[in-house]
Every structure is written in C-alpha cells, then in structure tokens.
C-alpha cells in the first residue's frame, strides 16, 4: 500500500508489547487515581492495579529486546536521548516506568506482607510520577506510528490519544476482571472500575472516529487504501464485529446497564470484551499500516 515505501514489518509480538505496555500504564494510572481518591476504600483496587502493571510490564522489555536485530545492543537505546524520536522517548519511558512500577509493586508487597504499615505517601509520590510515565508508555506507540512515513499512520493524528485510551480501558478492564475473579462480589471498586472502563472506551471510540476522519481528510490514496483494509477489506469483519461492536459499542451499552444494576458477571463479560476489542484496535491498525 505504501507504493515504494518500506515497512518495518514489526511482528505480532510488537502488537503484544504495545498492548501490554498500554495496559500496564493504564492500570498504574488508575491504581494511582484510586489511591489518591481514597487509599483505604480503594486499597484493593490500587493493589491489584500496581501488581497488574508490573506483571503486564515484565514481558515488555523481553519482547522488545528479542525483536531487535542485535539484541545485545539494546542498551544503545538508553545511551542516547533523542527527543525527536518517539522510540527513544519510549525507551526512556519504559525504563522509568519499569522502575516506578517495580517500586510501587514492591511497596504494595511490603504492605501486604505486613512488613510496613501504611506506605500511601511514598506510593502516591511514585504513583504520580510513574503515572505520567505510564500514560506516556501507553500513548507513545501511537505517536511513534504517527511519526513514520507509513501512509495510514502519518495521516492520522489521534493514534497517540487512541492508544492511550485503549491502554486505560484495557487497564481498567483487566483490573476489574482480576478483582472480580478474586472476590466474586460486586464491590464498589469493581463498579468504579467498570465506570472508568466505559469512560475510557468512549474516549477510545472518539479517538477511533478521529483516526478514520483524519485519514479520510488527508485524501492520500495509499492511506485510503490502507484504511479500506480495515473498514471494508479483509480486516473489516474483525474491525466492525470485534473492535467496534463487540469491543466498544457493546461494552458501553453493557456499562450503562451496569450503572443501573451492577453485576460482577456483567462487569467480567464487559471487561473481556474491552480487552479483546482494545487488542484488536491496536493489532488491526498495526497490520493495515504495514501492508
């Protein structure tokens, strides 16, 4: 689709990385939000969030390194600081966020093991700093794609916003799912996570519309061809059925139902849909952009 242009042909693993990184960032930010609002009331929410962030993060550097042509030179990424390169910034963000996620999870663990009583204060500090980095980690892949010459990406301007929203929605959904699995009761935390999820999905949907709109507006033929892969081509079933209907519209509807009648089962189903939808959004955009 790119005419004479070339593509990095990043493998599926990179989609996984973008998804997990976004999820980790989203979960971390939401955990921090919960912590800030009420560290006692949402203790479980922030616990799950910080643990989840770390768990989701662990494979990330591994995937990144494995994908490199010369893995031993991974460190070269953090020997330079290039603000014009989203990838450079992303590498730094990943490094910084890993530290934050590790510390946050460590402090949480110390609390859980009873080694320390209340570490909310340092956690809040780490959470706020790490939250910025987490959001950065969620958003930067979108900006990174936008800063390539691939017609689908260079003509879209909301990829960072979209990826961030997917990170948040999937982070929230994953937290809700874990909590639900652990407690089987519709707790306050789960409900608020469900609300957060729906909010994020709404933003995600708006960003998605923004994506389609900006590509359309560019009028660039190769970009439109690539877009058509998603909207009417081979990926359209997955896109419309999976990413949009099942992954966005349905969760919003279910979320509205949940607002009236909270239910663990419903939240769990919604969360799964959101996770699948979010993953599809990223994967399809990656795939269509690289043809």
């Amino acid at each position: 689709m790119g005419g004479l242009l070339q593509s990095a042909h990043w493998p599926f693993l990179i989609d996984v990385y973008f998804f997990l990184g976004g999820l980790a960032g989203g979960a971390f930010v939401i955990a921090t939000a919960a912590l800030i609002v009420d560290s006692v009331r949402y203790r479980d929410v922030s616990r799950v969030g910080y643990y989840l962030a770390l768990v989701a993060l662990v494979p990330c550097p591994v995937i990144l390194i494995v994908d490199l042509g010369v893995p031993v030179r991974f460190m070269n990424m953090v020997m330079t600081f290039n603000p014009r390169s989203p990838m450079s910034m992303g590498a730094w963000a990943l490094l910084g966020f890993s530290a934050a996620a590790f510390l946050a999870a460590l402090l949480t663990l110390l609390e859980d093991l009873g080694k320390a009583r209340n570490l909310s204060r340092p956690k809040t500090v780490i959470g706020v700093v790490g939250g910025f980095l987490g959001f950065f980690l969620a958003a930067y892949p979108g900006v990174l794609l936008g800063a390539t010459a691939r017609p689908l990406w260079i003509n879209a301007h909301t990829l960072g916003a979209l990826f961030l929203a997917v990170g948040a929605s999937s982070g929230a959904a994953a937290m809700a799912l874990v909590l639900a699995a652990l407690s089987r009761r519709s707790g306050d935390g789960i409900a608020r996570l469900a609300t957060t999820t729906v909010l994020a999905v709404v933003i995600q949907l708006v960003a998605m519309i923004g994506f389609v709109w900006s590509v359309r507006a560019s009028g660039s033929a190769p970009a439109l061809n690539a877009l058509a892969l998603i909207t009417s081509g081979p990926y359209s079933m997955l896109f419309w059925g999976g990413a949009i209907v099942a992954g966005s519209v349905l969760p919003i509807l279910l979320g509205l139902v949940g607002l009236m009648r909270p239910s663990v089962g419903l939240t769990a189903v919604t969360s799964v849909l959101v996770l699948v939808g979010g993953f599809l959004v990223k994967t399809l955009i990656m795939a269509a952009g690289q043809v």
Partner: peptide
C-alpha cells in the same frame, strides 16, 4: 500535534478516573 492530542486524551481519562472513584453512592459496599 499527536502528543497534544494524547495529552488531551490523558487528561480526559485521568480526570474521568478520578471522577469515577470520587463519585458518591454508586455500587455496593466497599
């Protein structure tokens, strides 16, 4: 531009989350 839009998205999500957790009365007991 992409970064600005991302920041916008981040603000919306962040504020949304804060609001979602601060809101009174929804859901069951803690």
């Amino acid at each position: 531009v992409d970064s600005l839009l991302s920041i916008g998205s981040a603000l919306l999500v962040g504020i949304g989350a804060l609001v979602a957790f601060r809101q009174r009365g929804t859901g069951g007991e803690a």
